[in-house]
Design a protein around this nucleic acid. Structure first.
Lengths: 376, 376
DNA sequence: CTGAAAGCGCTAACAC
DNA sequence: GTGTTAGCGCTTTCAG
């Protein structure tokens, strides 16, 4: 059971070693190793196996991962380089997904926040290599093209939420087009026909992808595309406010905003123009920034990009596993969204939407999902 | 460079080993080790030292951390258990601070997100112990009392942003009282005398601490405390809205809100009541939730808790270092005075820091800081 | 001042 | 089927 609580055992760290387990079980360390690692192709008698298990339990044995890593030349670590961690919830979601999947595969995540600083990036990468990571995920908090840092090629790697023009580099990215379609369809399904799209001015996959999705959804619904309804504006509250002031003259009844911050500005602008949301104009955002979407009045309908799933898929891709797989209990799409009350408060309940297709990606991205109800 | 005589080329991972460095430098591995680790108490000739350095550079040698951890029985890892990672920016800030300080000390952070789930917590902890971490930081995303999980005592540990009634457990927590004073003083300095405080209904150090700070600031300014101006409400937009509707009747010109979400609701309520911010009523929030504070119209004055610094101090405390000494911007160090910085230094170079396991006792945290300008 | 040697705890060939 | 035996790359006495 437990050793004497009064003093530290002399050895390295006082922990139970495999040799002690072997001794108690009356077998050799090799046998213990085989049993513990469930080694395939090695036949161990059921009796010995049982005794080993018992000894492990009784002694409270825990493997020394450093020793295992040393002899195998490879650790059970997966590195994750993130360019941000606190500024948005997106990176956090990626990390959560990657961690959950890594744990499922018996690995640990070694996260490093680089703040998009090349020096920190290089340092973090070396640290990871020094720890013999199996591979490295390179992730960004917003979907964009990146130049793969030189050192990254020293390790097996996969890009997450970003992509590179360098051929042969695996990447997993969100389906912007699907997101744009979903957002637009929310408004179409609510009966809107004259729908503005407040797009960002920043060139990005989000800009082109969401616009394409907007147009596709309109086309699918038999609504003619009107270029006058697509307004480029800075992707913040200020941009939304400025563009929102012009909306009344356009005669639109619905607005799809490039992101939730823009939607926040639109709310303000519409209010200042004497229009009410959702009675006069319906608004749909993008990103599901919990703190905005759930707490605006009325709560904002929005589309979330599957960041958690991006993390999951990044790990799977890195480990040479296919995208989806059978029983995935944690694939609960609503999980990432549930947080505050507003979701339960809304009238029409939660709607899940599937965004198939995958732009630029070597991997299928999971569906984006929608929060709150569409505003009629 | 693959000049191993016994032809063992693909042995570990093809990386340069210390033996190769030793061979090139014409010294033994022991000498290389001493030079690399800058071992004190061992005299190495300047010449040998130089040759080792050159060999390291030429070969691009990188140490195998697994090997070092194995032989020393301890890795250069510091574990960080976080109960959340994506739901708020707070945890992220703690992580950033802890990581930066860990790196400064030549350590790596091993982060685990537990989502406040006991099973995940236990699993993560075992993982960390299996990696021979030096110690573990146990952090929460909001300041609260916790019961230290049993397994945590297997490792050296420090609580971050939380505290325990268990005696002897070190902890570093934010100075809520100082935050409350700061927020209130913003309004006082702007000339307000009738200031409401929308406190949370949730019992917590934040609730009592900020209220105490509010009262202290009033007292310092010679303003009588009026219990009618303290309104408990749910700490969300909804709570702020509800309480905000009552503000006009109270004749207040300033409002200190328990957090930014409440302030967001207050903005809405005041607008609905026909009052303007800041012309009619000034509002100060708390938390500096960037996405709210910076994007409300007008931008919200708010107070930020020092989460980054909490992470930094957690690491320093764990590693037996005193609170950092550094550039300390804008005053208000008075919070530190009341925290009775219980930093005791032992002889023999061993530093022990004891934090009273009481809500009010915070380890000398850096001052909270204020964003944006006070509204006249 | 420097080097030879003995492992750290574990895995992987190969004997038995 | 199971035990024996080498090391993995590094740190650390302890001789010289």
């Amino acid at each position: 059971m437990s050793d004497t609580p009064d003093g530290r055992l002399p050895g390295g760290s006082g922990r139970v070693t495999m040799r002690e387990v072997a001794a108690l079980a009356g077998v050799s360390t090799a046998t213990v190793s085989h049993v513990i690692n469930d080694k395939q192709g090695v036949r161990i008698g059921p009796d010995a196996r049982r005794r080993v298990r018992e000894a492990v339990a009784e002694l409270g044995y825990r493997p020394n991962l450093s020793a295992a890593a040393l002899v195998k030349g490879e650790s059970r670590f997966i590195g994750l380089l993130a360019d941000s961690i606190a500024t948005t919830p997106f990176a956090g979601a990626v990390i959560r997904g990657a961690q959950d999947e890594a744990w499922r595969l018996g690995c640990s995540l070694l996260v490093a926040n680089t703040e998009d600083n090349a020096a920190a990036e290089a340092q973090a990468l070396e640290m990871m290599l020094d720890h013999q990571v199996q591979g490295v995920l390179y992730s960004t908090w917003y979907h964009r093209e990146v130049v793969v840092p030189a050192g990254l090629s020293s390790a097996d790697h996969v890009l997450v939420n970003c992509f590179s023009s360098t051929p042969g580099v695996r990447a997993v990215v969100p389906d912007e087009g699907g997101g744009g379609r979903t957002a637009t369809r929310i408004l179409l399904d609510a009966g809107h026909r004259r729908i503005a799209f407040l797009n960002t001015t920043t060139p990005s996959p989000a800009r082109t992808g969401r616009l394409a999705g907007y147009r596709e959804a309109l086309a699918d619904a038999g609504v003619a595309f009107d270029p006058a309804l697509v307004i480029d504006t800075s992707p913040e509250q200020e941009g939304g406010y400025a563009a929102g002031l012009d909306l009344p003259e356009l005669g639109v009844t619905g607005v799809f905003c490039h992101n939730d911050r823009v939607a926040m500005g639109v709310y303000d602008a519409l209010r200042d123009r004497g229009l009410r949301v959702p009675d006069d104009v319906s608004v749909v955002g993008f990103d599901n920034q919990e703190v905005i979407a759930a707490h605006l009045r009325p709560p904002l309908s929005t589309v979330a990009l599957p960041h958690y799933e991006l993390g999951v898929l990044g790990v799977r891709l890195l480990m040479g596993l296919g995208p989806a797989e059978g029983p995935d209990p944690s694939g609960d799409v609503r999980g990432a969204a549930s947080s505050a009350g507003p979701v339960a408060t809304d009238r029409d309940g939660i709607v899940s939407v599937i965004c198939p297709a995958v732009p630029r990606s070597s991997v299928a991205a999971p569906p984006a999902y929608v929060l709150a109800a569409a505003q009629p």
